[in-house]
Deep mutational scan, measured.
Amino acid sequence: MQVTWGNVTVTFSNPEEAKKYAEKVARKLGGQVELHNGQFRIK
């Protein structure tokens, strides 16, 4: 499962870890987490 924002992509084998990481990054950037085609995207 991947977490992407800007031109950065981070890949996780565990979807739960990916979700936690995406939420943490979104909080830092003041963005929203979207699940899109099996990727968490931060907008």
Rank of each mutant, 00 (worst) to 15 (best):
M1Q: 06
M1R: 09
M1P: 07
M1A: 10
M1T: 15
M1H: 14
M1L: 12
M1K: 08
Q2V: 14
Q2H: 08
Q2G: 07
Q2L: 10
Q2P: 03
Q2A: 10
Q2E: 12
V3G: 01
V3H: 00
V3W: 01
V3K: 00
V3F: 05
V3E: 00
V3N: 00
V3Q: 00
V3A: 01
T4W: 07
T4M: 11
T4Q: 11
W5H: 09
W5F: 11
W5N: 03
W5T: 04
W5I: 14
W5L: 09
W5Q: 02
W5A: 04
W5C: 15
G6S: 06
G6N: 08
G6R: 05
G6V: 03
G6Y: 09
G6P: 03
G6T: 03
N7P: 09
N7R: 07
N7L: 06
N7G: 10
V8E: 06
V8G: 04
V8Q: 07
V8A: 06
V8P: 00
V8F: 11
T9F: 05
T9D: 02
T9Q: 04
T9M: 06
V10H: 06
V10T: 04
V10L: 12
V10E: 04
V10N: 03
T11F: 13
T11M: 11
T11H: 12
T11Y: 14
T11L: 10
T11S: 12
T11K: 11
T11A: 08
F12W: 02
F12L: 06
F12V: 02
F12Q: 00
F12Y: 03
S13W: 08
S13K: 13
S13N: 12
S13Q: 11
S13V: 09
N14G: 07
N14M: 05
N14I: 06
P15G: 09
P15V: 14
P15K: 10
P15Y: 15
E16H: 11
E16R: 07
E16P: 03
E16F: 10
E16K: 07
E16T: 10
E17D: 13
E17C: 15
E17L: 12
A18S: 02
A18T: 01
A18G: 02
A18D: 00
A18P: 00
A18E: 00
K19D: 02
K19P: 00
K19V: 07
K19Y: 14
K19E: 07
K19G: 05
K19Q: 11
K20V: 12
K20W: 11
K20S: 10
K20E: 13
K20R: 14
K20N: 11
K20T: 10
K20G: 07
K20Q: 12
K20Y: 10
Y21C: 13
Y21A: 04
Y21H: 03
Y21I: 03
A22N: 00
A22L: 05
A22V: 04
A22K: 00
A22S: 03
A22T: 01
A22W: 03
A22D: 00
A22P: 00
E23K: 06
E23W: 08
E23V: 08
E23H: 09
E23L: 09
E23Q: 09
E23T: 07
E23R: 06
E23M: 09
K24Q: 13
K24T: 10
K24R: 12
V25H: 02
V25K: 04
V25G: 00
V25P: 00
V25A: 05
V25S: 02
A26P: 00
A26L: 03
A26E: 01
A26W: 02
A26Y: 01
A26G: 04
R27H: 10
R27N: 08
R27P: 01
R27I: 10
R27Y: 08
K28H: 15
K28T: 10
K28L: 15
K28Q: 13
K28W: 15
K28N: 08
K28R: 14
K28Y: 14
L29K: 03
L29E: 04
L29A: 05
L29D: 01
L29C: 12
L29R: 03
L29P: 00
L29V: 13
G30L: 05
G30D: 06
G30K: 08
G31I: 06
G31Q: 06
G31F: 07
G31V: 08
G31C: 12
G31E: 05
G31L: 10
G31K: 04
Q32D: 07
Q32N: 08
Q32A: 11
Q32V: 15
Q32R: 12
Q32W: 14
Q32C: 15
Q32I: 15
V33D: 00
V33N: 01
V33H: 01
V33A: 05
V33Q: 01
V33L: 07
V33M: 06
V33K: 01
E34P: 00
E34G: 03
E34S: 08
E34R: 05
E34Y: 10
E34D: 07
L35N: 06
L35C: 12
L35D: 06
L35G: 04
L35Y: 14
L35M: 13
L35R: 07
H36M: 12
H36S: 10
H36G: 05
H36Q: 09
H36L: 13
H36I: 15
H36P: 01
H36C: 15
H36E: 12
N37D: 12
N37W: 02
N37G: 07
N37F: 05
G38S: 04
G38W: 02
G38Y: 04
G38Q: 04
G38L: 03
G38F: 04
G38M: 04
Q39W: 04
Q39N: 12
Q39P: 00
Q39Y: 07
Q39C: 10
Q39K: 09
F40E: 02
F40Y: 15
F40M: 08
F40R: 02
F40D: 02
R41V: 15
R41A: 07
R41L: 15
R41G: 04
R41K: 10
R41H: 14
R41C: 15
I42P: 01
I42H: 01
I42V: 11
I42W: 02
I42Q: 01
I42G: 01
I42N: 01
I42E: 02
K43V: 15
K43L: 14
K43N: 11
K43M: 13
K43I: 15
K43F: 13
